[in-house]
């Protein structure tokens, strides 16, 4: 589904990604963990070209993202992205947030988009909020709307950039629950997260990133209970203690 080959990304002089190779299969849930500054968010943002790639290759569902002839907007409409700070559109209602993409990008009729939106809101447990504005929602509700907004484009892959890091602890559960449902439905997901419980329970594989490379990867049980790389060991001992 996703193949990344020797991906490099520099911001000016600073090289943030120093050669990433990864394979992600269809329906797989990959959790990316690692210390801050390790490049995990940058890696995720390269996967829908929110960051342009310095060198290397990214292939998603048979499309070469690094091919200059590719229609970036087409790719992005198939790769959903959920941000740490939700980034809902404050001047639009919850339902309008969700229907904007289908209407403007896919050319879906307003009526049809509304139906899609309402069914997605039901799915994330916010059916009663369709006419509310984002400002009136809690963080957890906002993030569930953001997930619905991404899903409305019917993406093949969903990227999550620390989706629960900006939430109050008691609101994290609802968001993770929605993500778990998605995983069970077979969505291909790449999740940058600090939620080790989620990674363990839902993740098929874990990437541990540090200093711009994937230092270690494996199934969650192996990574958490028996990490091989000393950096992984030291990172896990810090966050689990």
């Amino acid at each position: 589904m996703i193949t990344v080959k020797d991906l490099h990304k520099s911001f000016g002089e600073l090289e943030v990604l120093k050669g990433i190779d990864a394979q992600i299969k269809e329906q797989e849930v990959v959790c990316v963990i690692g210390p801050s500054g390790s490049g995990k968010s940058t890696f995720l943002r390269c996967l829908n070209l929110l960051e342009d790639v310095t060198s290397g290759e990214i292939e998603i569902d048979g499309q070469q993202l690094t091919d200059p002839r590719i229609d970036i907007n087409e790719v992005r409409s198939q790769v959903g992205m959920v941000f740490q700070h939700f980034n809902l559109f404050p001047h639009k209602t919850v339902l309008e947030n969700i229907t904007l993409g289908p209407i403007k990008v896919k050319g879906v009729s307003e009526g049809e988009a509304k139906e899609i939106g309402q069914s997605l809101l039901k799915k994330v447990g916010l059916a009663d909020k369709e006419n509310a504005y984002p400002d009136s929602l809690s963080g957890g509700q906002k993030q569930r709307v953001a997930i619905a907004r991404s899903l409305a484009m019917d993406p093949k892959v969903m990227l999550f950039d620390e989706p629960t890091s900006a939430l109050d602890p008691e609101l994290v559960g609802d968001v993770l629950e929605v993500m778990k449902d998605l995983a069970q439905e077979g969505m291909t997901m790449v999740v940058v997260t600090h939620e080790m419980g989620f990674a363990k329970e839902v993740g098929d594989r874990v990437f541990f990133m540090d200093e711009g490379v994937i230092m270690e990867e494996g199934d969650p049980v192996q990574i958490f209970d028996n990490p091989q790389n000393p950096r992984t060991q030291s990172f896990l001992s810090k966050i689990l203690s």
Binding site: S77, L88, F89, L100
Partner: peptide, 13 residues
């Protein structure tokens, strides 16, 4: 906020 722009681009606008 830059995130507004990113969110727009991310849904394919």
């Amino acid at each position: 906020d830059k995130g507004q722009h990113e969110a727009g681009r991310a849904i394919g606008l």
